[in-house]
Design a protein around this nucleic acid. Structure first.
Lengths: 310, 310
DNA sequence: CCCGGCAATACTTTTGAGGTATTGCCAGCA
DNA sequence: TGCTGGCAATACCTCAAAAGTATTGCCGGG
C-alpha cells in the first residue's frame, strides 16, 4: 500500500464522486477507479458504496479513512519537522560548563538562546574543565565552556575559541580594614586568612593564585577552601577572611561585601568555548551565534565559524 | 512522497548500511540509494550522514523518522481497523425500543451483545413505536423494537420480524383480595380501580385493553394512568388498584405483588424487530444473531436474514 | 424507450521503480 | 606511496504499473 492510495481514498470520500475526485487529484477517472479497486482488494474489504446518489464510505471505509488521514498528516508533518530540525529550530544542545561561567556569560546567553530557540531542549551539565573535553570528543556533549583550552586525547578534533578574559580579584566584607582600598597588594593578602575555591577541580586557578602569592607561600596551604564562589563571597561577608576568585564573581549581587582589584594583576585562564570540529549542526551554529551576540570580545575564530552556511 | 520512501528510510536507519538495508527490503542497493536521494531532495534536507563507520540519521533525519514510523503504524492500523469494522467488531449500533422491551428481551440481549462485541458502541433510544419507523427509514436508527409492525411512509423498505408474543396480565398487591386467584376475569376487573400505562404513546396496548374491558366500558376512562410498568407495579403494590400491563412485566422482580393471568386471554401486539432492508452491515448482522440466540421464538425471517454472508 | 450521467473495462502510453554493471571514494595496510 | 577492499553513487537498461484514451454497461429520470 502506498500513500497514493490513501490520498485517493481521502479525495474520493471528500467529493463522493469518482470523476470530480479524479479531477481534483489531477488524474483521469479510470486510474482512480483502478487504484481504489486495487486498494479494496489489498485491504480485503469494500471501502466505498457506489450508489446513484454518490460514492460513500462503508463502515470499514470510515475506519480506514480515519487512519489514512492521520497517516497523511504524519507524512506532511515529517517534512515540516525535518525542515525545522535542519534549521536548528528544534533539537537538543548538551552544554558542559565550569561553575564560574554561570556567573557571567551564561545567564545572558541562556536566556537569549531560550528566547530565540524555544523548542530546543537545553541540557546543562556543570563540570570541571578536565571532564568537558573527553565528553566532547566522545560525543556526550555538544559544546563546552572551560577554563583554558581543552587538552588530552582527541583535543585536536575540537575547535576552541576564547570568549572572555579573567583575572584574580579579592572580595572582603564592607567592615574589613581593606574594604576602603582601591586595590589590595599580594603582601597584604599574605598577612590575611584567605578563602579560595576548591583547587583540585580547576588546577589553572590554583596556578594563578600561586603566581600571585609565590609558589613557596604557606598562605595558600592555610586558606579556607570553598566549593564555589558563592561560598567564598558568603564567607568573606561574614568576616572569615579575604576571598580570592575570578573577576567574573563581580556579577554576583550581594550586599555586605566589596570587590577589590589585586596587585599585581594576575591573569586567570581564559574562558574557552569549544566543540567538535566535525559538528555542523544548526543548533550548535545558532548557539555560537548567540554567544557571539552576547560576548563582546569573542575571538575571530567564532566569526569565521559562523560564515559558511552549509 | 510515497510510503515506500518512509519504509526505505526506516530500514536504512535500522541497518545503518545501504547494502544490508536493501537486502532486507528485497531490493538491490542502487535503487535504495536513489530512493533515499529522491526523498532527501523532496524534503530539501539531508536526512542521513554517510560515514565510513556507517549511515546515520542527521538531526533532521531523526525528526523525520519519528514521524515516518508513526505514519507507517497508522497505515498498518488502517487495514486492521477496516477489517475489524467489516467484521462488525467495531462500529456503532443505534437501537430504538419501546419501554416494555427493557423488561424482557433487552437485558439479556444487551448484556450478551456487549460481551460478544465489546468494541461496538451501543446507542440506546427509548421511543414509541410510532417514532421508530420514520427514524429507521431516515437512517437515524439501525434497528428498532416496536409493538406491532412498522407503518407509515417508507415502511416497505423495512424488514420486520416478530420476536415475542405478549398478552395482558394483572398485577395486584399480595394483600389484595384477588391475590390468591389463579386468574382474574374481565368482570372482576371492571369492579376495581385500574392502573394502566400512558395510552397515547402506544395505541395498540390501549386497543388490547379495550378489547378486554369492552369498548363502552368506563373502567378505562377512570383508570389511573402511569408512565411505565414500574410505576404500575409500584402503585399496585401500595394497594391503589389492579395494575394491567404486558405479560413481559413479570420479568420485573418486586416483592409485595402478585401477577395474575386475566381471562379472557387478551393478546397484545407482538414485539417486532425491524431494520432497513438495504442495511447489510456486519454490526447489524451480529446484533440479529444475538437476538436469535436470546429469543426462543424468533420468526423464520430472521434466520433467513442471517444465512447469506455477503 | 431513449437519454444522460457515472463507474468499470479494454487497451495504449509513459513514467519511474528496480536490476546490472561500473565508477569513485576513501580507510587501512603493505 | 601505491594497492586493495568495501561501500555508496552513477550510468544505463528493463519492465511493472500508473495514467491516459476510448468504450462499454448500468441504471434512473424524462
Amino acid at each position: 500500500m502506498e500513500a497514493r492510495h490513501l490520498r485517493y481514498a481521502v479525495a474520493l470520500a471528500e467529493h463522493e464522486h469518482f470523476g470530480r475526485a479524479a479531477g481534483e487529484l489531477g488524474i483521469a477517472q479510470p486510474p482512480l477507479s483502478k487504484q481504489i479497486a486495487d486498494l479494496e482488494r489489498e485491504v480485503g474489504v469494500r471501502l466505498f458504496d457506489r450508489t446513484r446518489q454518490g460514492v460513500f464510505p462503508t463502515a470499514a471505509g470510515e475506519a480506514f479513512l480515519a487512519r489514512a488521514r492521520r497517516a497523511l498528516d504524519e507524512i506532511a508533518a515529517a517534512t515540516v519537522d525535518a525542515g525545522r530540525a535542519a534549521r536548528g529550530e528544534t533539537g537538543r544542545l548538551r552544554l558542559g560548563f565550569v561553575a564560574s561561567a554561570l556567573l557571567d556569560p551564561l545567564p545572558g546567553v541562556l536566556s537569549r538562546f531560550g528566547r530565540e530557540r524555544p523548542d530546543v531542549r537545553l541540557e546543562l551539565h556543570e563540570m570541571a574543565t578536565s571532564r568537558s573535553s573527553p565528553a566532547l570528543v566522545a560525543g556526550e556533549l555538544d559544546v563546552a565552556l572551560t577554563l583554558g583550552p581543552p587538552r588530552g586525547a582527541g583535543a585536536e578534533h575540537l575547535v576552541s575559541v576564547p570568549i572572555g578574559r579573567d583575572h584574580v580579584i579579592a572580595v572582603v566584607s564592607t567592615v574589613h580594614p581593606y574594604a576602603g582600598q582601591q586595590s589590595i597588594s599580594a603582601d597584604q593578602l599574605r598577612r590575611q586568612p584567605l578563602i579560595v575555591s576548591a583547587g583540585e577541580d580547576e588546577p589553572a586557578v590554583v596556578a594563578g593564585l600561586r603566581t600571585l602569592l609565590g609558589t613557596d607561600s604557606s598562605a595558600l596551604g592555610g586558606a579556607t577552601v570553598a566549593r564555589d564562589v558563592h561560598t567564598i563571597i558568603g564567607l568573606a561577608a561574614s568576616g572569615v577572611g579575604v576571598g580570592l576568585g575570578p573577576s567574573r564573581m563581580r556579577a554576583v549581587p550581594r550586599p555586605g561585601v566589596r570587590f577589590c582589584e589585586v596587585t599585581p594583576r594576575t591573569p586567570l585562564p581564559d574562558l574557552i568555548l569549544s566543540f567538535a570540529a566535525r559538528d555542523h549542526s544548526a543548533v550548535l551554529r545558532a548557539f555560537l551565534d548567540t554567544i557571539r551576540k552576547n560576548c563582546p570580545d569573542v575571538g575571530a575564530a567564532l566569526n569565521d565559524r559562523l560564515r559558511p552556511h552549509t
